[in-house]
């Protein structure tokens, strides 16, 4: 019953928070409207998102987000250096395939987003059976090392976060 009324508690909390941030004030009518939206939208969209993602450890998720933010900062300096100082003929772009073994589509989406935001890599597509990601590297002298790096640094952590 409760699972039907609140299909995604995380999404509900996120919607309430977003609405309060949007109105930029915490008053009774803001909260009532926020709760209303937070309850209605997940129910109305439940058929598009049937399974609830199972988080195994939220603490690890926070650590993961911290790691990604740090990597994004480092990534930007690397990409800036490539754009500014590397001549065209030295930039070696490459397509690579990364085989993926993740339990849920949510984890896969998170990995794809992480890859796009971090050093010189960009997720371009996923195989139709969701077992491999197509990634474009801006400058990868050693594509195999990039692939192993993605698998060890991000995928292994996500496997531990999502059950």
């Amino acid at each position: 019953m409760i699972a039907r009324l609140i299909p995604h508690p995380g999404l509900s909390a996120f919607l309430v928070l977003t609405w309060v941030l949007l109105t930029n004030s915490v008053s009774l009518n803001t909260l009532v409207l926020a709760l209303l939206l937070g309850l209605a939208i997940p129910v109305l969209t439940a058929s598009y998102w049937p399974d609830r993602p199972r988080l195994r450890s939220p603490v690890r998720l926070l650590c993961y987000i911290g790691l990604v933010v740090w990597d994004v900062i480092v990534a930007n300096f690397q990409v800036a250096r490539i754009i500014l100082f590397m001549p065209h003929d030295q930039i070696r772009s490459a397509w690579i395939t990364v085989p993926i073994d993740l339990p849920s589509p949510e984890a896969l989406a998170m990995l794809a987003g992480t890859i796009t935001l971090t050093p010189g890599t960009l997720t371009a597509d996923v195989s139709a059976d969701r077992k491999a990601l197509l990634i474009h590297c801006l400058h990868a002298p050693d594509p195999d090392a990039t692939r192993d790096d993605i698998k060890q640094r991000y995928e292994a952590r996500l496997q531990r976060i999502f059950a």
């Binding site: 397509w95 085989p99 195989s127 139709a128 077992k131 197509l134």
Partner: peptide, 16 residues
């Protein structure tokens, strides 16, 4: 021909 193979039975979702 420019894209690498998926390594799985199915093709990339864009052209599958």
């Amino acid at each position: 021909g420019e894209l690498p193979p998926t390594g799985t039975p199915r093709d990339w979702s864009n052209r599958d």
